[in-house]
């Protein structure tokens, strides 16, 4: 049984993906499918809520990296919110804060979309 799940919610025009569990090379395909589903639906303003994400490996980070250019080329973005410290440390280790806006809460992340481009 997978120890990872993605919940889909919406805040206005923004799609919020709430990640729960452990995101590794085994579960990364679930996250890929979630982003693909957003693309198919024409949803390119995406907030990833990491409050309940307990673990991430490079395979999980790789999903962010693989999709970000395409999402931005459609005028959207992926903003990352509410990461636990131990998970944020992995993003930071690889320099992701230079490529992504990572903020404390989902509300803050959705406000960033309202205030225009990063």
């Amino acid at each position: 049984m997978s120890n990872f799940s993605v919940a889909f919610t919406r805040q206005g025009s923004i799609r919020v993906l709430s990640l729960t569990g452990e995101l590794d090379a085994h579960t990364a395909t679930e996250f890929e499918k979630a982003i693909e589903r957003c693309k198919t639906n024409g949803e390119f303003s995406i907030v990833v809520d990491g409050e309940h994400l307990a673990y991430i490996s490079s395979a999980g980070l790789g999903v962010f990296m693989a999709f970000i250019e395409e999402i931005r080329s459609e005028g959207g973005d992926i903003k990352i919110a509410a990461l636990q410290d131990r998970v944020y440390n992995v993003f930071d280790l690889l320099g992701f804060p230079i490529l992504f806006e990572i903020v404390g809460t989902v509300e803050e992340a959705t406000r960033l979309f309202a205030t225009g481009p990063q």
Binding site: S57, A59, M65, F67, E69, L94, G95, L99
Partner: peptide, 17 residues
Amino acid sequence: IRRLARERRSGGLGVHI
């Protein structure tokens, strides 16, 4: 990572970690 993102690649980070 900027270059990997431009090339839309998802791998290449594990050994570095």
